[in-house]
Design a protein around this nucleic acid. Structure first.
Lengths: 187, 187
DNA sequence: TGCTAAATATGATCGCCATCATGTAAATGT
DNA sequence: ACATTTACATGATGGCGATCATATTTAGCA
């Protein structure tokens, strides 16, 4: 049954939304096209009306979710607290797409890598803009250093089975970034 | 054909070695049991004489490679240089297993997670021991902050398609860690 | 020097999944 | 209203991969 143009756009949007959650939760490979469609309230048949392939879905999902996710823009301290929290660690499905998907993008299509590249670029800019007063060079260094540490901490905190060590990873990374972004030690 | 006890041990070791390279290079899901066996110079049939399942292989591979990989023990500055280098970024197959596999371990068996936990614990200890003079608390914070930043930087540097930005990630992360491990700013 | 057990090889099996083929009904334009 | 297009459903198909079954050869032991 054909649906309205508007309905179709909604469907497409919903597919991307549920795909982004499923991918973050279980990884690209562990999620089937049929599973995505079902989660979107459709059947697998209509999939290729929306996307050319699963690779295409992956690439478009990255672009979709990175465009939506605009964290770090406002209060950096609050962002840090939320990002390096057990709650974020334990809820990958609706957590940061970079922490959830970045490592897997190495094995995805060029389009997916390209989408991630743009997402990373703007994220660094956002963090940079939220940083306290310092020279542009120091600002960029601090933005990159903070961001890679945040992403690395959440990835590692999710990879291990010891809650104490995992919590410690988050806490100490936060303290480390706090110290590093307060002022930059004279080289 | 049966082989000697010694030959079998060698085979097993070789399977773990090639598996660790293949997994780091292509990811757990993209490598088949048959591919691992073939790379080890065997056929797929003998696999279940060595391992109970592919999950078991994954878990034992993690333990194997993390036990072998003892980086960061000596000169921290040299380790940083090598770790945050384009060469390391571009050679995941024989690069750091944590950077290559940590994110995927979230979706693996409890045994795999456990192996990664032990590997991380000892890596933090090694880095901590290699750090310059500071209080134990500062030392641990710096070790964790540095390590999560190193891992995060390599993961992100590998995820994007812009060589300039990728290089910048590595360089700035190195500078950031250098600054942060020189001395700790008074909170 | 045989016997037996074990390590691999070869050859199924079985299920899952991406993708394709075809049907159906409703939206859209005239 | 009607014709036509099209979004989605249902139902293949084909391949790949984990795992199992069986054969074969030889190490290890009596």
């Amino acid at each position: 049954m054909k649906v309205s143009r508007e309905q179709m756009a909604e469907n497409r949007h919903r597919i991307l939304d549920v795909a982004s959650r499923l991918f973050r939760d279980k990884g690209f490979d562990a999620v089937s096209v049929a599973e995505v469609m079902k989660a979107a309230g459709l059947t697998h048949g209509g999939f290729y009306g929306h996307f050319g392939s699963k690779d295409d879905l992956v690439a478009q999902t990255i672009a979709h979710v990175l465009a939506a996710d605009a964290g770090g823009g406002g209060d950096l301290r609050a962002y840090l607290d939320a990002y390096l929290s057990p709650t974020h660690r334990d809820n990958a499905a609706d957590g940061c797409p970079t922490a959830g998907l970045a490592a897997a993008i190495r094995h995805q299509s060029p389009a997916a890598r390209s989408a991630m590249t743009e997402g990373l670029r703007s994220q660094i800019d956002r963090i940079s803009a939220a940083l306290p007063e310092m020279s542009p060079a120091d600002r960029r260094r601090a933005a990159i250093g903070s961001w890679v540490a945040m992403v690395g901490a959440v990835i590692l905190a999710r990879a291990i089975d010891d809650p104490t060590l995992s919590d410690e990873l988050l806490e100490h990374t936060k303290a480390w970034i706090d110290a590093g972004t307060r002022q930059v030690p004279a080289g």
